[in-house]
Simulated assay, not measured.
Amino acid sequence: MAGGYDRRKRIRRLKKIILGTVAAAIIIPVIVSILLGVRVVSLRNRVKELEAMLLTEKEKNAGAGVFTLSSVEESDRNQEKDTQEMEGEGAQAESTDIQKEVYFTFDDGPSANTDEILDILKEYDVRATFFVVGKTDEHSVRMYQRIVDEGHTLAMHSYSHKYDEIYASRESYVEDLTKLQEYLYQITGVWPRFCRFPGGSSNTVSNVDMTELIEYLDENGITYFDWNISSGDAVREDLSVDTIVQNCVGKLDNVNIGMILMHDANDKITTVEALPEVIKAIRERGDTAILPITDETKPVQHVLSNNIN
């Protein structure tokens, strides 16, 4: 009898242990999940607070008020224009021999090469225009700010650079461009008013009539720029330095305003290597000023102009 009692007692104890283990296996994850959920909500609220503080501080530093679409006309671009014109022209503007204007434009950045491009431009005291895409990594954010801080023109290419999405409809293009415009404003305090269509205004992949998109830009005070000189670096990543220099300089005799298309992308190593040679070749001409795009720049446009190349 005693043996049977002890056995039942052991069985009851074993059942309690099993039930306790099962209960713990259920309850502990639930408690942990609740605690983690509370922590996540707390962290999200803190992130929102920090973002609000950061945006407020950036607006103070930029001298801007609370962001609204109506701030376009009061953008820092108006103040930057005079500075860029003076710095960009430099000693060249004093020469009476200047007959041509050349604009270096870089598409698709920021990239791993942006720092080096900016270093070269700084070394040669040249201002350029960067038609950027939307990137959120720390390096890209720093590059957007450096472009502005060093007197270059920060302009828009597209946020996603995905042709099938951007050109799916007028609404999708507007959504993409607006997203980039507001993003760049939040980072730099500058409201960009210049853009370049991915593929140019003469692209053949858009599902929407490009004149509709151009009308939208006109209605919103945005000027688009194409190009009439191509470095050729979009064709292949290993294009030789000599070829890039010749492509950039060889057509200058045929134009009074040269809008040169280059690319700021990770694989465009020879573009970076060619940049000093392009600058020196243009300056050796003695009749050409290298400038950033400003409100005073006459646009080169494939659609609605004779500048198709």
Rank of each mutant, 00 (worst) to 15 (best):
V303Q: 11
E89Q: 06
I147P: 00
T68Q: 10
L252F: 03
E87H: 11
F131M: 05
G286Y: 01
A168D: 01
V235F: 11
S95M: 06
N266K: 12
A24C: 13
A112F: 01
D209F: 00
I260G: 09
A281K: 05
T83L: 14
S160G: 08
D125R: 10
F225I: 00
T243W: 02
T243L: 14
N45Q: 11
R283N: 14
R8E: 06
V278H: 08
G90Q: 06
I26W: 07
I120D: 10
G200V: 04
A64C: 09
T68G: 14
P198V: 15
M210W: 04
Q186V: 00
A23P: 01
E94H: 07
I17H: 05
D119V: 06
T270M: 03
G258Y: 07
V241N: 07
T136V: 03
V235K: 14
K268N: 09
E165W: 11
I17D: 03
H152M: 09
G20P: 08
M210R: 13
V245T: 07
V278N: 01
R7E: 15
G4M: 04
L213P: 00
I28Q: 06
E87N: 13
T211S: 10
V141L: 15
G90N: 04
V235L: 09
K48R: 13
K60F: 04
V241Y: 07
N309M: 12
Q92N: 07
N256R: 11
E150H: 11
A155K: 02
I244V: 00
S201D: 00
C195R: 03
D242P: 09
G109Y: 10
G199A: 08
V40F: 13
A274R: 09
L275H: 02
G258F: 12
L69N: 13
Y216P: 09
D115P: 10
N220S: 03
T56I: 02
G200M: 00
I222W: 00
P192R: 01
L261F: 02
C248W: 07
W191E: 05
F67N: 06
R10H: 08
